[in-house]
Design a protein around this nucleic acid. Structure first.
Lengths: 159, 159
DNA sequence: GTAATTCCTAAACCTAACTTTAGCTCAAGA
DNA sequence: TCTTGAGCTAAAGTTAGGTTTAGGAATTAC
């Protein structure tokens, strides 16, 4: 174990529970910035244990790595974050969470009012248009879908 | 536009709002089973409009395509689904949603009690151990992470 | 001093859910 | 009939968030 300057990637991995490969990946994403020792091996600040712990928590809140990088930039680079620094980020997390909960509750309510009743009016259904149905641009996985609603009569008769 | 037997993939795409390529992909995943006309082009049942609409809704509930394929198998293949058929699936959706909402609410409560207060006791924090922190096996994106909690003192002093 | 760890990089691979591209055939309208 | 739009297949590409592998180099343990 190193003692003089900085901790090794293996030790950091052990302390955070992250895989070594994940930590290297996070470095590539700009989430940590280790320096190198004489032999070219990475050395991390002891404070990076907490920094990466924060990354893990933020991920649980559904934030992407670029977003988390943004949070980390808002934290003080040099000194240990204060109560106020954390409280600020906490507010962001809070509203993010509140919004997701609200979306799900609405979805549940719509479910009760629509499929739940067996009405089968899918094309008119509110579930087709939940609030967060963002326009989908380009490639990658599609988590939410867009559509073009119309009436039941149309759906069954045309063309 | 075809009129005698079945609808074309382009028309189905127009009616559902899905991309043609997505419909072909869904066929490959066993979510629809078109037949072919004399020229080798796909022909779909008119009922597949609703079938694919269901797929889109189920995706919004966070179900994967294999799971959705399971739901569709539980629906009657031949006849139009009844109130009861839908009610059965609706129950599944319901409990799935309820569980997700509950998880998020717990996460929010922990947030209020931990980061929100600025205590900075991250290593002791409940956010490290939300109930749904499943063991991660193998490759692919990691949505939830595991860790090894310890005390603040340990974290700051050792080794 | 040497064997066993740990670390290094670069590149390839993984999943899910699709899209894009290339090159060709089918079908429909004027 | 001829042209253009719609369809077809197979293969490769995309995104996020990593893991795995191969082939060396540096450290640590004995």
């Amino acid at each position: 174990m190193p003692q003089s300057a900085g901790i090794s990637i293996g030790y950091l991995a052990e302390r955070t529970g992250l895989a070594v490969s994940a930590i290297r990946y996070y470095e590539a994403q700009g989430l940590v910035e280790p320096w190198r020792n004489a032999g070219g091996q990475r050395r991390f600040h002891r404070a990076d244990i907490r920094r990466l712990s924060f990354v893990m928590i933020a991920q649980q809140f559904g934030f992407s790595l670029p977003e988390i990088r943004g949070f980390l930039k808002s934290l003080p680079g040099s000194r240990t974050p204060t109560k106020e620094d954390w409280a600020c980020i906490s507010d962001t997390f809070r509203s993010h969470l509140d919004q997701r909960i609200e979306t799900l509750v609405k979805l549940r309510d719509n479910l009760d009012g629509c499929i739940g009743c067996g009405c089968l009016s899918l094309p008119n259904c509110k579930l087709y248009n939940p609030e967060d149905r963002a326009a989908q641009k380009g490639q990658g996985p599609r988590y939410l879908m867009g559509d073009r609603p119309e009436t039941e009569a149309e759906a069954e008769n045309a063309p």
